[in-house]
Amino acid sequence: MIADILVLACLAVGTFFNALGIVGLLRFPDVYTRMHATTKMTTFGSVFTALAVIIYGGASYLGSTDPQYVILSVHTLIAAVALAFTNALGSHAIARGAHRSGIKPTPAVVDRLEEVQP
């Protein structure tokens, strides 16, 4: 019963943040601000959906003692860790490439990188 509520809560949080990430991707004005929405919020949301699967696997293992559910949890944990690391690195690479190709942050208060790297 408690596991039921936890799984539902994790899925709700994950879906909410994923949806807001997509809204931010469609709504924000330039590349860098869009990247804020997608990187942070879809990573957080996807890790929470994975967490729901991990909790489901643990609860099902306690109910039935089928080792298949432990394998499910461990593999999902590995997938979530890989996702969190690769997303941060990938968005950093895209930001660097975008600035090198000459895309300026259009509504910007200050741009210290432009002074160093023409």
Binding site: F17, L20, G21, V23, G24, R27, F28, D30, Y32, T33, H36, A37, K40, M41, F44, P105, P107, A108, V109, V110, D111, R112, L113, E114
Partner: peptide, 23 residues
């Protein structure tokens, strides 16, 4: 991370941003 996500979620809904690149 949790605090940052709630913060950015608020900014997505209200659209109140002040971006820039700092060192």
């Amino acid at each position: 991370v949790t605090k940052a996500n709630v913060d950015v979620a608020g900014r997505v809904i209200t659209g109140r941003i002040r971006p820039g690149i700092i060192r």
